[in-house]
């Protein structure tokens, strides 16, 4: 085929973006090797002591908490999102389809902060849930949900749901219903059809949904900041505190770098396992 140089110009935006990312990554790497000078935005000479600070158990626990929160969030988003996606794709009634679509997708169009504030009104001491439980006399003291990992997870699950539903719906809609009919013709009841055919065939969607939400939650900031209120800290929150409260850019850079590495390792592991799934001939 004849080359058409004209088309190369379409890559310009991608190149500009890539350069911007490279520059910021370069800045972060550069900062991570410089000495922090307390009380100053300037940085000192080259040093490795920022990396040595990572050994402190405090940071280990922040990473562990972040990983656990990401894990819970992806698991709950998956478990709650799958039925929604399934109904959205397979329901016969268009009315049900559009309702589910609207309910799952609309949160995407409200900002992260707005959504998080909405959860403050639901989870807070005077929020919807506590008013209901206190008002009906089921509780005599308000339930502590704000500033807990539970509250943060609930808000993160809600935040991640649209993406999960879209990814799963795409995967489920690619499953030919003839497979399900074939299973039914072989005496599989609807529950068996789901477990033996539909669910295994949606594995690619489940994997990519899980990974996307995991990676996306790993870098969550506003939700843990507002709902966690300093009591539940994820990596981004610590980076923010170090960078903008103590102006310790070098150590903030080290923490960010580690988070990026973690995400890359995670994606590689998932990529390898999806390749294995593909070899099992799951499209």
């Amino acid at each position: 085929m004849k080359r058409q140089p004209f088309f190369y110009w379409f890559t310009v935006p991608a190149v500009v973006l890539a350069l911007a990312f490279l520059a910021s990554m370069g800045a972060i790497i550069q900062y991570s090797f410089r000495k922090h000078i307390p009380g100053s935005l300037d940085v000192g000479p080259v040093t490795l002591e920022n990396f040595e600070r990572l050994a402190h158990p405090l940071y280990f626990s922040v990473y562990l908490d972040t990983l656990l929160l990401s894990l819970y969030t992806s698991v709950f988003t998956l478990v709650l999102g799958y039925p929604l996606a399934y109904v959205m794709v397979r329901a016969r009634s268009r009315w049900i389809k559009s309702t589910v679509l609207i309910v799952s997708i609309v949160p995407l169009f409200t900002g992260e902060i707005v959504r998080t504030y909405a959860w403050l009104n639901v989870l807070g001491h005077n929020g919807f849930i506590n008013s209901l439980l206190l008002g009906t006399g089921l509780l005599d003291r308000p339930l502590q949900m704000m500033f807990t990992p539970f509250g943060v997870t609930v808000a993160l699950v809600h935040f991640s749901m649209p993406i999960m539903v879209v990814i799963l719906a795409a995967a489920i809609s690619h499953i030919d219903t003839d497979y399900e009919k074939a299973a039914a013709s072989l005496s599989a009841n609807p529950i068996k059809v789901f477990w033996k055919v539909t669910l295994p065939l949606s594995t690619p969607g489940i994997v990519s949904g899980f990974v996307t939400i995991f990676a996306w939650t790993l870098s969550a900031f506003a939700t843990p900041q507002l709902i966690g209120g300093g009591k539940v800290n994820m990596v981004s929150n610590i980076v923010y505190q170090l960078g903008f409260a103590s102006f310790n850019f070098p150590f903030a850079a080290v923490l960010s770098l580690l988070a990026v590495m973690l995400t890359i390792v995670l994606l590689l592991v998932i990529y390898a396992s999806t390749r294995r799934l593909e070899k099992m001939s799951l499209h």
Binding site: D176, A183, V197, M280
Partner: peptide, 11 residues
């Protein structure tokens, strides 16, 4: 039943 596209379970 044999389907037009066979519908053999790919997994």
């Amino acid at each position: 039943m044999v389907f037009q596209n066979y519908a053999l379970f790919p997994h």
